[in-house]
Design a protein around this nucleic acid. Structure first.
Lengths: 105, 105
DNA sequence: TCGATCATTCTAGTCTGATCGAATTATCAA
DNA sequence: TTGATAATTCGATCAGACTAGAATGATCGA
């Protein structure tokens, strides 16, 4: 994952409202959550919610699947894993080593 | 870590320039990197760099230690670890399970 | 087709963030 | 103290983000 892509995803997660949406979707697991239910639970104006969902979809963090009249939203776990990998591999190789050294000392 | 704090940290990492700064600091390890060296390596205007560093410090992602005339910048590895923990514990418990189930199937 | 529900898009207002040049503060060497 | 270097703060501009009400599009039951 390129660093600009990572930044885009972090930016998407950097808004409190969007982070709550994302967390709700991740917790929902494979079943996902319809837009309407998110709206009820998080008490967000529909237009605002839709705006944030679009941002999350564009960032690749979630996807939406139409099921009859409702739109079901799912977290993209692979992308989340990619972010974690970036934090660990691209960033934290030295960090972990340093930390271990420190802890051991 | 509260969800708003997490959002603040993600937001800080959500700017490409800041993410590059942060990555450079994480890679620098315990030794850290002076502001001036960051400025040389990343080719950012001093005032812009200072602005972003302030944001990272405020978010708690890095800290600065004065050493004579230079300011040495360090990544806060504990905070990074806290972010990872949030992703895993607050978010991904179901995700990992679902993934394993899927992979096994 | 009509009506109802679900969700998005449009439009607009407000606000915050990114950037950089210029001026300022801080530290040290001589 | 003076001069030099390091870094921040100030001031201004510009672009983009957040929010939400109103209007529109999509889907299905009757």
């Amino acid at each position: 994952m390129k660093i600009d892509d990572v930044a885009t995803k972090f930016e998407a997660l950097g808004n409190p409202t969007r982070l709550k949406i994302y967390r709700a979707l991740v917790r929902a697991g494979e079943a996902g959550t319809p837009v309407g239910r998110l709206q009820e639970r998080l008490k967000i104006a529909p237009s605002t919610l839709s705006h944030h969902l679009k941002t999350l979809v564009t960032a690749g963090l979630i996807r939406q699947v139409r099921e009859a009249t409702t739109l079901n939203c799912h977290a993209n776990y692979d992308v989340m894993r990619g972010l974690m990998d970036f934090m660990v591999a691209e960033c934290c190789a030295d960090a972990v080593e340093s930390k271990d050294t420190k802890s051991a000392a």
